[in-house]
Simulated scan of single mutants.
Amino acid sequence: MLPSCCCASPRGDRGVQREPLRCAPGVEIWGVIMWDGRFEILLRAQLPFLSREDELVDDLPLRDFGLDSLGMIQLLNVLESEYELWFGEEFLRTETFQTPSSLWEAISKMTSGRLM
Rank of each mutant, 00 (worst) to 15 (best):
T96A: 10
C23E: 03
E28N: 02
G66I: 00
M1C: 06
F39H: 09
R14K: 08
G71R: 11
I73R: 03
L56P: 00
L76T: 12
L70Q: 08
L92W: 05
F39P: 10
D54A: 14
L76D: 09
M72Q: 14
L70E: 04
L85I: 12
G113I: 13
P100G: 07
L76A: 10
R93M: 12
L75S: 09
L62S: 02
P3S: 06
W30R: 13
F91Y: 15
L62E: 01
V57W: 12
P61S: 02
G26Q: 02
E53P: 02
Y83Q: 07
T111K: 15
L67N: 03
L50E: 02
G26N: 04
F91H: 15
M34L: 12
D13Y: 10
S9K: 11
V32F: 02
Q74T: 11
R22W: 06
C5M: 01
P61A: 00
P10R: 14
S9V: 10
I73Y: 06
L62V: 00
P100S: 07
F65G: 02
S9E: 13
T99S: 12
V16D: 06
A8W: 03
Q17T: 11
V27S: 11
R14E: 13
A106H: 04
L21N: 00
F87Y: 06
Q74R: 15
L21M: 09
G37Y: 05
G37D: 13
G15I: 06
T96K: 10
M116R: 15
E53L: 07
W30P: 01
A24Y: 00
E105T: 15
S81K: 13
L21S: 03
R38S: 14
L56S: 04
L60C: 05
L2W: 02
R14V: 09
S108G: 13
G113W: 14
Y83T: 07
L47S: 06
R63D: 09
V57Y: 12
G26M: 02
E40K: 02
E82I: 00
E95N: 08
W86D: 10
L62C: 04
V16E: 11
L75G: 08
P25C: 01
K109R: 15
S4H: 05
R18N: 06
E55C: 09
M34K: 05
L2T: 09
S51Y: 00
I107T: 05
E84A: 11
R63A: 12
P3G: 10
A24D: 04
P3M: 08
L47R: 01
T99C: 01
L43K: 04
R38W: 01
L2F: 12
D54M: 07
V78W: 09
P25F: 04
I41R: 14
R38P: 08
S101I: 01
S69Y: 04
D68E: 09
M1A: 11
L62H: 04
I33G: 01
R22S: 10
D54R: 03
S108F: 14
S4V: 14
R44T: 07
M116W: 14
Q74E: 15
E89C: 01
E82C: 09
M116S: 15
E105M: 12
V27D: 05
W104E: 03
G37I: 04
L62F: 05
W104H: 11
F91P: 03
F65I: 01
P3H: 00
G37A: 13
V16C: 10
L76Y: 04
S101C: 08
V16T: 11
T111N: 12
W104A: 10
Q98G: 12
W86A: 14
Q46H: 05
Q17N: 03
M116F: 14
